[in-house]
């Protein structure tokens, strides 16, 4: 999957070329007629914002280590500086491992908007999960952009039907391109409901 190649957001959109939930052009309004699902929009999270953070973590880690290596007395003694280098290496390793895993996991997510629901799907090592919120139950949504997301043109859209941000009534489309348009699409679909 290439998350950055999301499908059109228009209501009369072109179908998503990816598997499972995409309609064929002939099926675009088939739901009411034959009960089959009509996908209005489908995409995945972009790993780019996380990749940028990964790069930044590597650069900052290496920079601090270079400074410590170049100034062995910086922390009082060469031994103390060596301990500092170990600490920076450990922290950098943890951060890099975490971000690498996240980049991989992001490729396993898929976000779908159908005529009457929004869905989050996840598959990993033959395990799969999906969570769906009926548009008729939607109580609120918000769009946020971190600095990195703003720089790269991505954002996160959160949808809530009830409960809390850890309950089944919560969904987030993370690192998606043109988040406002997704939100607008959902808003339009919600009004129709």
């Amino acid at each position: 999957m290439t998350p950055d190649t999301d499908t059109s957001l228009d209501d009369a959109q072109a179908p998503d070329p990816r598997p499972s939930t995409q309609p064929t052009p002939g099926e675009s309004h088939a739901e009411s007629a034959d009960g089959r699902e009509h996908v209005r929009f489908s995409t995945g999270p972009s790993p780019r914002p996380t990749a940028v953070k990964l790069g930044a973590a590597v650069v900052v880690g290496l920079l601090i280590e270079a400074i410590l290596f170049a100034n062995p007395e910086l922390l009082g003694s060469p031994e103390a500086t060596r301990i500092g280098i170990y600490i920076v290496s450990l922290v950098a390793l943890l951060v890099v491992a975490r971000l690498l895993l996240r980049v991989y996991l992001l490729t396993r997510y898929r976000y779908v908007v159908t005529d009457d629901a929004i869905r989050w799907e996840y598959t990993l090592l033959y395990r799969s999960r999906a969570r769906e919120l009926p548009l008729s139950e939607l109580r609120g949504h918000e769009t946020t952009r971190s600095r990195v997301q703003s720089l790269l043109g991505f954002g996160t859209v959160r949808f809530l039907t009830g409960g809390t941000n850890r309950s089944l009534g919560f969904l987030a489309f993370e690192n998606v391109a043109k988040p406002e348009r997704i939100r607008e699409l959902v808003r339009r679909r919600t009004k129709r409901e």
Partner: peptide, 21 residues
């Protein structure tokens, strides 16, 4: 004296600092 610290000592102290963090 920290000067007597072996690499194992330094790694252990760094681990301790990271977990404390």
């Amino acid at each position: 004296s920290l000067a007597d610290a072996t690499p194992a000592d330094q790694a252990a102290l760094a681990t301790l600092a990271v977990i404390l963090g």
